[in-house]
Design a protein around this nucleic acid. Sequence first.
DNA 1: GAATGCGTTCCGTGACACGGAACCCGGACC
DNA 2: GGTCCGGGTTCCGTGTCACGGAACGCATTC
Lengths: 242, 242
Amino acid sequence: MLEKSWLVLDAFRPTGGPLRLIEVAERCQLPKTTAYRLLTDLTAIGAVERRERGYVLGRRLFELGSTVPLERDLRHAALPFMHDLYEATRETIHLGVRDGLDVVYVEKLRAHESLALPSRVGGRLPLNCTGVGKALLAYSSPDLIDEVLARPLRRLTAHSIVDAKRLEEAIGQIQAAGLAYEREEAQIGGACIAAPIFREGTVVAALSVSVPLSRFHPTRLAPAVKTAALGVSRALNRSTLR
Amino acid sequence: MLEKSWLVLDAFRPTGGPLRLIEVAERCQLPKTTAYRLLTDLTAIGAVERRERGYVLGRRLFELGSTVPLERDLRHAALPFMHDLYEATRETIHLGVRDGLDVVYVEKLRAHESLALPSRVGGRLPLNCTGVGKALLAYSSPDLIDEVLARPLRRLTAHSIVDAKRLEEAIGQIQAAGLAYEREEAQIGGACIAAPIFREGTVVAALSVSVPLSRFHPTRLAPAVKTAALGVSRALNRSTLR
DNA sequence: GAATGCGTTCCGTGACACGGAACCCGGACC
DNA sequence: GGTCCGGGTTCCGTGTCACGGAACGCATTC
């Protein structure tokens, strides 16, 4: 029951947006009677809402999701620095954390005329395909790095690093530079510089600047990203984040 | 079962954690065996996570919450304008919607040296106590205004408007000015200017600038807030928000 | 070593989740 | 009008699994 209800909620991903009863039923592989009851119950709870044409995820979910401590505290600490970085660069800024073998985006400041990146707040992408992901990976435990290298690597574009050997090299370079560079690995026409954020010596997040390839000037962007990440690390360690 | 599990999740508000088993049990008025099972199940799902000392809300909740369509689309439309406003003022910016008799904050850009405001993304405050809330209220249906006026008004500070008569006056002034002013009604030492955001003729949100009283210059802030809100309204009406 | 407080396991009972069947309703088609 | 069709809703008998009292484990405290 509990588990099935979350199956239903997951059926709404990634759009959150309107699904008919039937669609939910078949996405979840549930008999429509059951899907109906679950949706009705979830509606009563406020976890989903009815629209003229189907169901959408509900506000109560938004409220609860916003109070998840890790993400909330991290955002709180990072946002001012992300704004600074945005002002300095006027480009799209990302903040992400690692979850399993994915990066989950926690915050995103979108530039006015930015390209359509595959990232979304609350969305996940493979670690090896994005700047934030690679920065997180390069400073993760050797065990995790090994696990990622051992598995087949997913790709987002033709430029995504899907060769374990090349990824290992890239990780070495990131560790040496303290920054992760990414060119068209997540989105054709886009590039990115990312820097890790530490708390008590371990990576907890990473932030990045994403720019159209035509405006990609590493020497200008790199110091800004680095100081921003450093600022967040300091803010985190100062506060009593749990 | 389903309902009880959401009772448990709500027990974590407003902080999101960490709570001990016992605390959850008594907040929910559930026998501890039941609370234990629910927490265990929810942990398996990813909706809560274990920490050394108790349980916290889990990342899966954050991910799901981020995909709730209404809030996501509103944020998407509003963020660029909020950034503009932030740059122009370098003060804390809020975006909120109404839910029942509360304002729910959807986005918040925090200035570096801002005072500790009671607002949180995903948090709720009484409509009558904040700039965003008053702006939303003043442009709501007469029925809703009457309902708010009829009920006992909550307060956040000694300056909060808790007298129905005075609130009605304030609403009139807001409607006349197209802006809501707020001085120390939400937080001692803080003031705020808020403006409503419309979609197809009805208020759907409001945004505000919050400043320490010492820096409160209405004549400078008011036009900036107004243009930002107007910009968001226009962006909303242009897009096919559902 | 008794007591206390919290977390965990066990287990018998009964409520209620489950889902097949049947029904309703509006629209499309003839 | 009649018929069909696809989605949504209601009904209800069956069997399961959620429920929660009891009892135990295990620190910590006095």
